[in-house]
Amino acid sequence: MLLTLLAVVTMAIVRQRSLFGVAILAGIYSFVMASVLIVLDAVDVAMTEASVGAGVSTVLLLATLHLINSTETRPIRRNLLALFFSVGTGAILVWGTLILPPFGTPDAAIHKHVAPRYIADSVKETGIPNVVTSILADYRGYDTLGETTVIFTAGIGVLLLLHRARRRGRAVDEAEDRG
């Protein structure tokens, strides 16, 4: 199954020390993830993951590695505390999944509540057959407005951090005035 491949790629990321290798493996990871999402019928999400995760993230990671030192300088030391903590939390979570309904059953609680209404009324109310689009932009418009604002804010933040400021001189002056 594809999920196993995903786990193998993750192990490779954990062990890899060259950050360049990590960036490429992260791209591979995203592509495998997109395939898994297609198998799970989430075509819109798969498309986003393939273009964002495998495309833009990888480019940004490589651009960062161009700016900084690209190998982990410290030797890998076994961090038993972190390992123990992760395995322990994982065990508790696996135990928690045992009460979840089995994979793929149509009568699970998640399929009972609002989703049938969206599927039944989307075409009648909005004229849009792709339910994902109609929920995204219409039924849950507020959500998407919020997400767009978050992207806007993150973009502004990066520009503030990285821009070769035309007014850098003035900013330094102000800092000195305050200092």
Binding site: D44, V52, L60, Y118, V132, I135, G155, V158
Partner: peptide, 29 residues
Amino acid sequence: YSNPLPHVLILTAIVVGVATLALGLALAV
């Protein structure tokens, strides 16, 4: 049909995720 609601939530989360990743990378730089 599969349940479309989680798809919507995750679709937006992916794009927000890359924006925040970029913010983190900028901080690292």
